[in-house]
Design a protein around this nucleic acid. Structure first.
Lengths: 193, 193
DNA sequence: TCCAAAAACTGACCATGGTCATTAAATCAA
DNA sequence: TTGATTTAATGACCATGGTCAGTTTTTGGA
């Protein structure tokens, strides 16, 4: 049976993704080498770059897939009752983002682009995250004196800071929650108490 | 005349730094190639790596030098009167950090280490920045309901977010100040107005 | 002055991400 | 069926960061 030309390309791409996923399980995101991917897939190196712009282009996709799962869970969960609750709901995603320094790097490096057409999967995911948090804050507004959009981006600012501290910190025994919750609470918590 | 052995090493290192500085002026931080540095310095490649751990190790130093200049200016300036004033005082440093994506990457990548002995120059600079801001906030406490240390780290969180937005943003025409001031004001501003 | 140890330097070599001219396969119109 | 055209795949090759066993220079003591 002769495969359609498009079908052939789809299968090649899927195989590269599958092999890469398996390799990530073995060696982590950073440890994956393109030479190893194409060797296991039985392809030439050039084929990889015909399907993905570069190594990060692949990681982009695979990381965005994982993030999407966390966002699905977030969207399905109830509106948080207070700032601490909101902070806790971010922890699964935050924990994934902290699983490897390389993952954090890719998220930062690839999280946006100049033209709309170039928006990467990760940027879309983070945009969706902002929308979910914004929707929550609209329904349960902790700080009426601050615009909801700024509150929502503030949540992301502290997530980013928690990650930066996690990877750059002198005390790596501090849990992520300890680097995130207090700021979130001070930010959205009870400003006039 | 015979040079002292240490003197010889110091001269080699200084020459590498000087050549690198000149190259940065020509091609930017990211465009500097190690092969070019050692070629212009008339040295072997191995010599470079005898003096610096890796390429980022060099950039670490040169970027930290620039940051130190901004912190000197910050330390010499008066305690800001309000949150907007505080935000504005951060702009020169923020602008330098945003001069090149690579600079931001190096700052993130190298801004800390597991062991005290490995603390890089940039980590020290950012630590000093936190101290300066903390000192300001101790003298002019905008939000008594939030611990000063958390206020100070909050300032850094929003600087980091402004940088991330700057490099990842869809609208690159937004000035850095517009990505920083509103958050700073909402954060430290007038929470109970 | 001479020599062994320490410090500095060398450059061939490696690892890995990425390119591109070429070849093979699939498609479609005549 | 066939030949031109488009799409997919190839792999030799390149760029650049980084390594390390070996060489040269400096030092300090006998």
């Amino acid at each position: 049976m002769v495969k359609g030309v498009q079908q052939r390309a789809v299968e090649t791409r899927d195989r590269l993704l599958a092999v890469a996923t398996a390799l990530i399980a073995e060696t982590g995101y950073a440890g994956v080498r393109i030479d190893e991917i194409v060797a296991r897939a039985g392809m030439a190196k050039g084929t990889f770059f015909a399907h993905f712009k570069d190594k990060d282009g692949l990681m982009d996709l695979l990381i965005a897939q994982r993030i999407a799962e966390f966002l699905d869970a977030l969207e399905a969960s109830p509106v948080p009752a207070d700032a601490a609750d909101l902070a806790d709901s971010m922890l699964p995603l935050l924990t994934f983002m902290s699983c490897e320094r390389y993952v954090f790097d890719v998220i930062l490096r690839r999280s946006g682009a100049a033209a709309l057409a170039e928006i990467g999967p990760i940027a879309l995911m983070l945009g969706r995250h902002g929308e979910i948090v914004g929707r929550w804050l609209s329904r349960r507004n902790f700080r009426p004196d601050v615009p909801v959009s700024i509150q929502a981006e503030g949540v992301q600012a502290f997530m980013m800071q928690a990650l930066a501290l996690h990877f750059c910190a002198l005390h790596s025994d501090i849990p992520l929650s300890g680097r995130f919750r207090p700021y979130m609470q001070a930010w959205l918590g009870h400003p006039s108490e």
